[in-house]
Amino acid sequence: SPALRPSNSMDDLSVTAKVLLQEYIEVLRSKLSSDELQQFAAILRDYRQTGSIKEFCSRLQTLYGPERKLLFPGMRPYIPEKDIDFFENTLERMGIQDAAANGY
């Protein structure tokens, strides 16, 4: 389907979006091992292709584990509008309070 192919550049993103993305990438780089980064890439790809937010959240929870659950809010700008309720609820269930504060 259209618009689902990964883009190789960040040209289309706003400056804010780029900064957020770069920051998140750096956080991931520092918190995840090479193997985990590979898993993260696979989880992202599956989510983009299947659109299953439920599976996405559950696999991410497994990958991050409780000690790295604060990696979740950084994902928020990339969650499609239709899935944001589920995502927010997942954050709440995990006890991540400041999800909104990291939104933009």
Partner: peptide, 12 residues
């Protein structure tokens, strides 16, 4: 990962 996130953002 960067490309996937950009794609998600764009499709969004």
């Amino acid at each position: 990962i960067t490309s996937e996130l950009v794609a998600l953002k764009e499709s969004n």
